[in-house]
Amino acid sequence: MEKQKADEYLLKVAEDQKKQIEKLNAKIIELEKQLDVKQEDLIEKEEALQHYEDLNDILIIKERQYFDELHGARSELLNFIKDKPRRGKFGVKRMGELDRTPFLEAMKKKYNEEEAVKRASELSSLWEGYLKDPDWHPFIAILVEGQEKQIINDEDKRLNGLKNEIGEGAYKAVVTTLRERKEYNASGQHIVPELWNYEQGRRATLKEGVQFLLEHTTIVD
């Protein structure tokens, strides 16, 4: 009887182990199916990602081509009109060039015409020299929406001296020149011609340039 009980116990243990193994095998099969599905999904996503990356590369190339074409057209337009007198609101502005007019206006308030011209020329030349001074940094950095931005330092002694001694007009002319050189030329040493909308005080669009040509160019059959 004891042997029979032992046999029955061993048989029960074997059956339980068989059931556990069957459950494990079923679980393994289920996991393998899920893995296959995930792998197929992953392959599809990788293919889609590759497609978007290829498309993005194509768009970048196209964007560069369009930029080069627009830049070339803008350069051709600028070269065409840069030596011609300004007509109306459209023309070429020399970005980073100091406007001497406010200096002359300030000197006319103190001196006769001849002396005013002389002193304005001297002051303008002096400030053009300051503008080329590599050791002068009248800008400070601030954060605007998490991005660093360079602005004119309101406490710059040289600029404040100009405002107090010569006037607001000369001060604004120098500040405008500083900003233009900062925007158009990082080294700040060169004058950069730009298509300009004088009426609105901004960079002219290529469309405005084309309209200007159509209005001021004589077409011969």
Rank of each mutant, 00 (worst) to 15 (best):
Q4D: 08
K5G: 09
A6N: 14
D7L: 14
Y9C: 08
D16N: 13
Q17V: 06
N25I: 06
I28C: 15
I29R: 15
I29E: 13
E30I: 04
V37K: 14
K38C: 11
Q39K: 13
E40V: 15
D41Y: 09
E46Q: 13
L49W: 06
L49G: 08
Q50E: 09
D54W: 08
D54K: 15
D57G: 14
L59I: 04
I60A: 08
I60G: 06
K62E: 04
D68W: 07
D68L: 12
E69C: 07
L70K: 13
G72C: 05
G72E: 04
A73F: 10
S75D: 09
E76A: 11
L78I: 01
F80L: 14
F80K: 14
G88A: 04
K93M: 03
K93S: 04
T101L: 08
E105A: 08
A106I: 01
M107H: 03
E115R: 14
A116H: 03
S121T: 11
S121R: 13
E122I: 07
E122G: 12
S124D: 07
S124L: 08
L126T: 14
L126E: 12
W127P: 01
E128F: 03
D135H: 12
F139L: 00
A141P: 13
I142H: 06
Q147K: 14
K149E: 04
I151Y: 00
I152L: 00
R158Q: 09
L159I: 00
G161I: 02
G169Y: 01
T176W: 05
L178T: 00
R179D: 01
E183A: 09
N185S: 09
N185D: 09
A186C: 05
S187T: 11
Q189R: 13
V192D: 05
P193G: 02
E194F: 03
L195S: 02
N197V: 05
G209M: 01
Q211H: 10
Q211T: 14
L214A: 11
V220L: 08
V220F: 06
D221I: 12
D221K: 15
